[in-house]
Amino acid sequence: MTGGRMVMAVFAAVLAGFGFTMAPRAGYGQDVAAPAALSGRFLLTDQDGRRVDQDSYRGKVRVMSFGYTYCPDVCPTTLATIAAAMDKLGADADQVVPIFVSVDPKRDSPSHLKEYLAAFDKRLVGLTGTDGEVAAAARNFHVRYTVNAPEGTADNYTVDHTAGVFIMDRDGRFLAKLGHLVTADDLAARILGYLK
C-alpha cells in the first residue's frame, strides 16, 4: 500500500466510523455491542463521601451511565431519561439503583454531584474519585474519555466520552448496554425484564 492510499484508507475508515456513530437510529434503544469481557469493577467515592465498589450495591440491578456535569454548549438528557424510567418502574424501582459515574473528577466533587443529581432523582448515586480510580472504572466498562484542552480559564474544558446506558445484574455483572438515545419507556421495559 502506498502512503497516499494509506491516507485514503484511514480517511475512509474514519468516515465509516463516524457514519456508524451518526446513523439515524444509532444510539436509540437497540443494544450497543459491548465485549463480554467487561468486568464492571470500580472503587470510587459516592456523593456522600463513602468509599464504594461494585459489591456495595449487591442485590440491586444497576443502571449506569458515564459523563460529567459541566456542559458548556449542550447538555445530554440521559440522566433525565434514567430518572423518568425509574418513575415508570413504580415500586419495582426499589430493586434498582441508578448510578452516574463522573469522568471529570477534577470538577465533579462528591458534594457537587449530590447537588446536581438531586435535580434529576434523589435515588441517583453519583460516583467520582481520583484520576486513577476514574480511569480504572472507565477501563473496566470499556468507556473512553478524553479531557480536552481548556479554553480561556483552566476550569473551562469539555470532556469527550463514550455515551450509553449500562444495565448490570444484582451481582454487578454486565447485562446490556443501550444507546444514549434510548427512551424512558424502552429503558424501563428492559430493566423490568431483568428484574424477573
Binding site: V14, A16, G17, F20, M22, H142, R144, D160
Partner: peptide
Amino acid sequence: VIGFAGSVAAKPLQ
C-alpha cells in the same frame, strides 16, 4: 482509528 471513531460519540450537532 476505526475503533475510536466508532465508540466515542461524535459531538452532537449544534
